[in-house]
C-alpha cells in the first residue's frame, strides 16, 4: 500500500512539472444547417439550369461529423435539334473529418475532408425532336415521353468552414465524383444528373459555396489536453 501511494505521488509530481494537465471542459453539441448560395446564381450563368441545395452536419465524436446534403434540380434546354426537360432530386450522405486541431472546446471551425454516397432520381423527356438527313434532304420529327433515371455515385469532398460570428459560418468545398451505377439511360442519357453533374461523364468535379447556422443542442463534458508554457 505504501509503495502504491509512493508511485501515485511520484507520477503526479512528474505530470505537474512537465506542465501537462488534463482538464474537463464542456463542448456544446449542435446541428449545423447550411444553404448553398452559389445555386442562386446558376440561372444567370446557365440559363437552362435551376437548383437548390441544403446541408447538415453533426459532430458524433471529436472532429468526426455525420454529414449530408439534399437538393433539387431542373433543366429546361432548348436546342435547334430538340428541347429537353428534366426534374429531379438528390441526396448525399457520409462523414467529414476535421483536420484543424484546436484545444479550445468552443471551436467549431473546420478544415475537413470527407466521403459521401450520392443518389439521384429524375424524370426527363425530349420534345420537338428534329432529325435531318443531309444527303437525302429529308426531315422527321418525334417526341420522347417521360423516362425515369436513377444514378449512384461516391464522392470525395474537402473544404473549410469558418465562423463569421457566433454560430454563423461560411465555407466552400471541392468535390470529386465517380459514378457507380445508373438505370434508365438506354434511349436518352441525362443532360445533367441532379447533384452529380454531366450525365455523359463517368466522373465529375463540383464546387459549393455555403452559409451555415449552427443550432446548439446540448452540452457534453469532454477531456481536453492543455499544455502550459
Amino acid at each position: 500500500m505504501q509503495k502504491m501511494l509512493k508511485y501515485f505521488f511520484s507520477i503526479g509530481a512528474l505530470l505537474l512539472f512537465s506542465g501537462i494537465l488534463f482538464a474537463q471542459s464542456e463542448r456544446v453539441k449542435g446541428l449545423r444547417l447550411g444553404v448553398d448560395i452559389s445555386r442562386f446564381a446558376l440561372p444567370y450563368i446557365q440559363a437552362e439550369h435551376e437548383g437548390y441545395e441544403v446541408s447538415a452536419d453533426f459532430e458524433i465524436k471529436r472532429d468526426i461529423y455525420l454529414a449530408g446534403e439534399y437538393g433539387v434540380e431542373s433543366i429546361n434546354l432548348e436546342k435547334e435539334t430538340h428541347n429537353y426537360i428534366s426534374d429531379g432530386y438528390y441526396f448525399r450522405a457520409g462523414f467529414d473529418k476535421n483536420f484543424m486541431k484546436s484545444e479550445d472546446p468552443s471551436e467549431y471551425e473546420m478544415v475537413f475532408g470527407g466521403l459521401r454516397y450520392g443518389f439521384a432520381s429524375q424524370t426527363h423527356s425530349g420534345n420537338t425532336i428534329i432529325i435531318y438527313d443531309p444527303y437525302w434532304v429529308s426531315e422527321s420529327s418525334a417526341n420522347l415521353s417521360d423516362a425515369a433515371c436513377q444514378t449512384h455515385w461516391i464522392e470525395i469532398v474537402g473544404g473549410i468552414k469558418v465562423e463569421l460570428f457566433r454560430n454563423f459560418f461560411m465555407g466552400w468545398s471541392v468535390r470529386g465524383r465517380i459514378r457507380l451505377a445508373h438505370s434508365g439511360y438506354s434511349i436518352m442519357e441525362p443532360y445533367n444528373v441532379p447533384g452529380y453533374g454531366n450525365g455523359a461523364k463517368k466522373s465529375n468535379l463540383g464546387l459549393n459555396f455555403s452559409l451555415y447556422y449552427r443550432i446548439p443542442l446540448y452540452k457534453q463534458t469532454v477531456d481536453y489536453k492543455q499544455t502550459e508554457d
Binding site: 452559389s38 445555386r39 446557365q46 454531366n198 461523364k201 465529375n204 464546387l207
Partner: peptide, 9 residues
Amino acid sequence: MIFAFSCRN
C-alpha cells in the same frame, strides 16, 4: 463566387 457546375463542350 464559386459555382457548382461541370464545364461542357
